[in-house]
């Protein structure tokens, strides 16, 4: 029991630290692409800490207060439900609680909390951002759910452990190779999930500055930031497990997640932003059509 708690804590802290590092690294990277020096890689740690120790904070109501808790619960929950390393029982925390469907639906938990907090803040920009986010999410989830179904039907399981196990034995067994169109569609959806340009309609600085956390500050914002960071890592884990054979060891883990993280960063630095309806329409039509190729392949063959 104690071991479980310690491991859980370690996973949480480790996930957060890794996520913050990735965030800091990407800030540096983007700055270099822009030709700036950029902040140090540790800047995100500093930001988080600084926000956390601020002396004052304001709140707009109960849901505003609770939203960061929702957010961190959502992020950590997904992290706990997705296995980190293949076959390592010790780090598989809660995956006995449910399969891929549970993870997919649990991913909404944090978003929901965020939305409720934004709504309770009473700031119109925050709510606008939420409506944008929800509209975009409903559209990329369309193709993503088709992809999930392809994997489930193709591999005969929805258990993430099962999906990872089915990909062992070399790169030829990875779902990336087995279901290339599904993977391509999922990678497009991934850009939406990570809110990278050109799909960054939720936190669109020139339109609705900052987006949902507009009214958040200090300790609340730090928790929000932590939640978002962990959630990002969890998504990386999920993708790694679903399409890229999971991680056989820590090196595998870091390489794969790092590359996955860099992919939206590279895409986003060279694109401007879509309008909301363009983004939504794109997600509904393009990746879904791509994923449908594999769906038909599975159903016919």
């Amino acid at each position: 029991m104690l071991a479980q708690v310690v491991l859980g804590l370690a996973t949480a802290v480790g996930g957060l630290a890794y996520g913050l590092f990735l965030g800091g690294f990407s800030r540096k990277m983007i700055a270099r692409i822009h030709g700036r020096i950029g902040p140090p890689v540790t800047q995100n740690y500093v930001d988080l800490l600084k926000l956390f120790v601020k002396r004052t904070s304001i709140e707009h109501g109960t849901m505003f207060w609770l939203a960061p808790m929702f957010r961190i619960t959502g992020g950590l929950g997904v992290l706990f439900l997705v296995p980190l390393i293949v076959g390592r029982v010790a780090v598989v925390n809660f995956s006995f609680a449910g399969d891929l469907l549970l993870v997919i639906y649990f991913m909404f938990f944090g978003c929901l909390g965020m939305a409720l907090g934004a709504g309770n803040s009473g700031h119109p920009h925050a709510v606008m951002a939420v409506t944008r986010g929800l509209a975009q999410m409903s559209s990329y989830e369309l193709s993503f759910s088709v992809v999930i179904l392809i994997l489930a039907a193709g591999l005969g399981t929805l258990s993430i452990d099962g999906i990872v196990a089915a990909q062992q034995g070399g790169i030829g067994h990875w779902n990336m190779v087995r279901y290339p169109f599904a993977t391509l569609a999922a990678m497009i959806a991934f850009l939406g999930m990570m809110m990278a340009y050109p799909f960054s309609v939720v936190i669109a600085p020139q339109e609705i500055p900052i987006g949902p956390p507009t009214e958040y500050s200090s300790r609340f914002l730090s928790l929000m930031m932590a939640g978002r960071t962990v959630f990002g890592v969890a998504k990386l884990l999920l993708y790694m497990n679903l399409f890229f054979g999971g991680a056989a060891n820590w090196v595998d883990f870091f390489v794969k997640t790092f590359l996955l993280y860099m992919y939206p960063i590279f895409v986003s630095t060279v694109f401007p932003r879509f309008r909301v309806e363009q983004s939504v329409r794109f997600f509904i039509l393009v990746p879904t059509a791509i994923a449908a190729i594999d769906l038909i392949r599975i159903m016919v063959l």
Binding site: F94, A97, G98, D99, L102, F106, A152, S159
Partner: peptide, 9 residues
């Protein structure tokens, strides 16, 4: 196709 433990979740 999978499992679900509502209590654990």
């Amino acid at each position: 196709f999978g499992h679900w433990n509502a209590w654990a979740v």
